[in-house]
Nucleic acid binder design. Structure first.
Length: 289
DNA sequence: ACGGGCGCCTGCCAGC
DNA sequence: TGCTGGCAGGCGCCCG
């Protein structure tokens, strides 16, 4: 699944390949792919036609492409399996092609949204009233991600101390910090030697600062690993950057030795998904042991 | 207001 | 071999 670094690679691909181009035709091939567009697929297509794409923006795992001189943007989320592809016109349709966008120029390529599981989709939204970053109104509640220069470390750390929840829940809470998925949460917690059920209020400032640093390290490592392919015609992403194969210390490593101490890693059911951790390096909090 | 939990989807694969 | 059911999980939404 696309994590934040992969989404950033997609954003760069959009900037490289579709910025400045004007839409002539939109085909919505699956209604679920535009379910976040309340007025429906026909409205989506009609309103997009004739608009010119500006440079794609990103917040967390959301992408948006402002439409020139409108205050409106195409908002996209890749969900679990979404891809944005720039393909040659006439290339065979992908099995899970959901939306096709054609342009009026002679570049010979079109933009495709392909999504097997349809957790993702595209929609049109006005920007927030205060106009911050041209952010679409429906994602006004999404916090900045830790790679954003304007991310406020101190505010995040303060919020952790005030919350009455556990640390992994907080890492996945989009209103506190965005762009951290299940995989990166487990990786950052392992690096920080923190158990996923640790109450956020129990983290000292140095510990939360260290955690934040590890979140950034994990993301940056993946960005470096995946950032080399973005200027190919194929805008990415198959969601499986080589980074995952080589560099995971926690996620998916049940029964394999901890890369730090050799203890077999464990998996626990958690929120209808899994948490992977080292039982020796990441001791459970006393209250929930 | 805040925190917890569920459901949406489909392909894969282990197990019977 | 063919079927079934569990699993993957970001995030909106609903409930208490």
């Amino acid at each position: 699944m696309p994590e934040l670094p992969e989404v950033e690679v997609v954003r760069r691909g959009l900037e490289r390949w579709v910025a400045g181009r004007t839409v002539t035709e939109v085909e919505v091939l699956h209604p679920r792919a535009v379910r976040r567009h309340p007025a429906g697929g026909e409205d989506f297509a009609a309103r997009l036609k004739g608009q010119r794409f500006e440079v794609a923006r990103r917040r967390g795992k959301y992408l948006w492409v402002p439409l020139a001189e409108t205050g409106t943007s195409v908002l996209g989320h890749l969900g679990m399996s979404g891809q944005l592809l720039v393909q040659p016109e006439g290339a065979p349709d992908e099995k899970h092609l959901r939306i096709r966008i054609r342009f009026d120029d002679s570049a010979g390529t079109e933009l495709r949204f392909v999504d097997q599981r349809t957790f993702g989709g595209l929609s049109l939204h006005d920007q927030t009233p205060d106009g911050t970053d041209g952010l679409p109104d429906v994602i006004g509640h999404i916090a900045r991600d830790p790679l954003d220069p304007a991310f406020d470390d101190a505010a995040f750390q303060s919020a952790l101390r005030l919350r009455r929840t556990t640390i992994k829940r907080a890492l996945l809470d989009q209103s506190l910090i965005s762009g951290v998925g299940n995989i990166y949460a487990d990786e950052a917690l392992w690096r920080s030697k923190l158990h996923y059920d640790r109450p956020t209020a129990s983290l000292t400032r140095p510990r939360s600062a260290e955690l934040l640093g590890h979140v950034r390290d994990v993301m940056n490592a993946a960005l470096v690993a995946g950032g080399t392919s973005f200027d190919s015609l194929y805008v990415n992403v198959n969601g499986e950057s080589g980074y995952f194969d080589r560099s995971l210390d926690a996620y998916g490593r049940e029964d394999e030795p901890c890369h730090r101490c050799g203890t077999p890693m464990r998996r626990r059911a958690w929120m209808n998904r899994s948490s992977y951790f080292c039982p020796r390096c990441q001791r459970p909090p006393r209250t929930t042991a």
